Amino acid sequence: MLRLSTQQGVRLNQAGQLAVHYGGAEANVAVSLSHFGYQAYFVSKIPANPLGEAVERHLNSHGVKTDFLKKGGQRLGSYYVETGVGERSAQVTYDRKNSSFSDLKAEEIEIEKILSGASLIHVTGITMALSPSLQKFVLQLFQKAKEMGIKVSFDFNYRAKLWTQQEAALVFKQIMPFINICFCGELDVVHMLDLPQADIMLPAEERLKMYYQTIQEQFPNIEYFSSTFRTVISASSNHLQGNLYTGGKLYQSKVHMLDPIIDRIGGGDSFAAGILWGILEGLPARQIISFAAAASALKHTVYGDCNPFSREEVLQFAATETGEINR
């Protein structure tokens, strides 16, 4: 996707210039996993024009393979970000209708070919929100992955500006039996999986653990659940903590103090990539959640949608005190 952002303190309807970045949820995860040492492929469709060329160049510059990137269609999906400041949060305006990707048909992709040799696939709810054809494609992709013994990762990543909770719930319930790694938070499971809301007097971590236990009883195929707790002090100051549930236990990272936030967009994708890296590496749950939260915290310190930090840099950051000089 093409992202166009205002400068801090400038409203979108006042802007005379916009900063350009390229990204998107799955693309951002692929970029991070590439920087973490894995061979990552991005499956999508882009227009055969200079913007499509820029997308391919962006992915290749981060080591992401574009062998399965289809070309055609009318346009590259885009979105506009009115950058938040102080108590005013950022605002996103989408312009994605009839994009090349939203018009992608299942028959355009050779599913067995793209899954051949893969260890894991990752998809988000944003993709499924774009069109019925993409919903059909993702369901077929997950079914085939299960047949081939490939791990399936899914991030609910619900966006109210793209579809309703009811629409998302119908789609998500169809794919739950095929998921091995699930990224979802408390509001996701209450509103889209129809779980009764837990007692709000309970600590947040206890409620989350109860939700994950209940979902796992319904869908024992899910080995890992993950999410973050984010406390918003202001648009440029947040507290972030990671959660990972596996083997009947909830593991939490330390609380990261994000202040100042340079760019929040892509922080969740960096977190997801960190979880996936740890699972692929076979690390203990405590190390996985520490790495993932550190990766997300680092992403908040740079402009753009994707995380440019290497595995070694994330590990070093996770092991040191915040702000300490590395000499």
Rank of each mutant, 00 (worst) to 15 (best):
E147D: 12
L18A: 09
V232D: 04
M257C: 10
N98H: 15
N221T: 15
E217G: 01
S226R: 01
Q287I: 02
E223I: 03
G125D: 04
A90S: 15
S100R: 08
S100W: 05
S270E: 02
S153P: 08
Q39P: 02
N238P: 09
V20E: 09
F225A: 01
F271I: 01
V10E: 05
I261A: 04
V85H: 11
R3K: 06
P260K: 10
V29A: 04
E112S: 14
H300L: 12
H191Q: 15
E108N: 10
I279N: 01
E107F: 05
S226I: 06
G282C: 08
S99A: 06
V171T: 13
R286G: 03
C184A: 15
T124E: 07
P203C: 10
F309S: 04
K146A: 01
G268Q: 02
E53Q: 15
P177F: 05
T320Q: 14
N60R: 15
L283D: 00
S227F: 10
A235S: 15
N180E: 04
Q216F: 03
S153T: 03
S100Y: 07
I121M: 02
P177I: 04
T214R: 01
A292Q: 02
R88D: 11
A27I: 10
A297S: 14
S32M: 07
G9W: 08
M148Q: 12
H35L: 11
V31N: 06
K161P: 02
K173Y: 03
L276G: 01
T320V: 05
H35E: 11
V190G: 00
S153H: 02
P47D: 08
F172T: 02
D194S: 14
F178P: 00
S296T: 05
A198Q: 15
I126E: 01
P50H: 10
S116E: 14
R327G: 12
I288C: 03
I275L: 01
Y245T: 04
E82S: 11
L202Q: 13
Y22F: 15
D95P: 10
A40C: 12
L315A: 05
R3W: 00
M1D: 07
E223P: 05
G73P: 13
H58R: 04
L115W: 06
K299P: 12
V92W: 01
E110D: 14
Y94M: 09
R286A: 12
G266S: 07
G248P: 12
E108A: 10
Q39R: 14
A292R: 00
F137M: 13
Q39E: 13
E312G: 04
F183V: 01
L134A: 05
L187E: 13
N326S: 09
K151S: 13
A30I: 05
I114T: 07
F42Q: 07
N326D: 07
L195V: 10
F142K: 00
F68H: 15
Y41Q: 12
